[in-house]
């Protein structure tokens, strides 16, 4: 498979501070990759390097020519105070194609409606974005990412703050988009348990550590214990892998609170 994005011994950081050093991996066409790790470990740094907003301090990050990202930001980075209809927000995904000093055409609006239909919320097109539920907002932002006809769909913490039902529906939708449209997907998340049961590969980022592999390769007690630095158990339930951090034993003499 052709590599859309290649990290070749890339060192990433800000100013003089190095966040991750000497990382090499490819994201091939049709990949469904979860970029997972605790907060502050460097997920966003890798994401910025992929999106091209951060230049590596050393090594290279190369992208296939004409590569276009459909970006779904963290929900709280969008200002819902703006009185924008859902369809108007989706249209933003085509602003760069529409060009400077030009208004969206009838065709742009049709494409926006088609994207909303694709994610199952066409009936909400004329509702204010701020009036939607968390899951519906996320669908609207995914529709905006899709309307620009991207090669890679990038989602930044798509389920943060969502309830179980919405989380399951959003992750199900993303997997559906990957399988139905053969879309390359990169999903950034701190929630290993959520991501591991949907993606095909995992890039695990911990402080000063990076490892990438298939879900089966990464989701082992040995790998996770080594990477997180705490003992973990990996169990399987109804075909789902579940990671549980082992609870440290009580100190002798410590009182158990009711």
């Amino acid at each position: 498979m052709t590599a859309l994005i290649s990290f070749d011994h890339a060192t990433l950081g800000y100013g003089r501070r190095v966040v991750l050093s000497d990382i090499s991996f490819d994201i091939p066409t049709g990949d469904f990759l979860g970029l997972v790790g605790p907060n502050g470990a460097g997920k966003t740094t890798i994401l910025r390097a992929i999106l091209g907003t951060l230049v590596p301090q050393a090594g290279t990050v190369t992208k296939a020519s004409g590569l276009r990202f459909g970006y779904v930001p963290q929900r709280d980075s969008v200002d819902y105070n703006f009185p924008l209809k859902v369809v108007d927000v989706v249209l933003m995904g085509r602003y760069d194609r529409i060009g400077l000093m030009r208004r969206p055409s009838r065709r742009d609006r049709d494409l926006a409606c088609a994207a909303l239909e694709h994610v199952g919320i066409l009936d909400l097109a004329d509702r204010p974005l701020g009036a939607l539920s968390g899951g519906q907002k996320q669908r609207a932002l995914i529709a905006r990412a899709l309307v620009g006809d991207p090669n890679v769909l990038v989602l930044d913490e798509p389920t943060t703050g969502m309830d179980l039902v919405s989380t399951t529906q959003i992750l199900g939708l993303v997997r559906e988009l990957h399988e139905r449209d053969n879309l390359t997907v990169l999903m950034v998340s701190h929630a290993l348990n959520e991501v591991a049961n949907y993606v095909e590969r995992i890039a695990l980022v911990v402080e000063r550590g990076f490892r990438i592999g298939t879900v089966a390769q990464i989701m082992t007690e040995e790998t996770l214990t080594q990477m997180y630095g705490i003992p973990v158990d990996v169990d399987e339930m109804h075909g789902h892998r579940i990671v549980v951090a082992r609870r440290p034993p009580l100190e002798p003499g410590a009182r158990r609170h009711a």
Partner: peptide, 10 residues
């Protein structure tokens, strides 16, 4: 003004 991160990626 609305979503600078996404604007940047485009």
């Amino acid at each position: 003004s609305f979503d600078r991160e996404t604007a940047r990626t485009l």
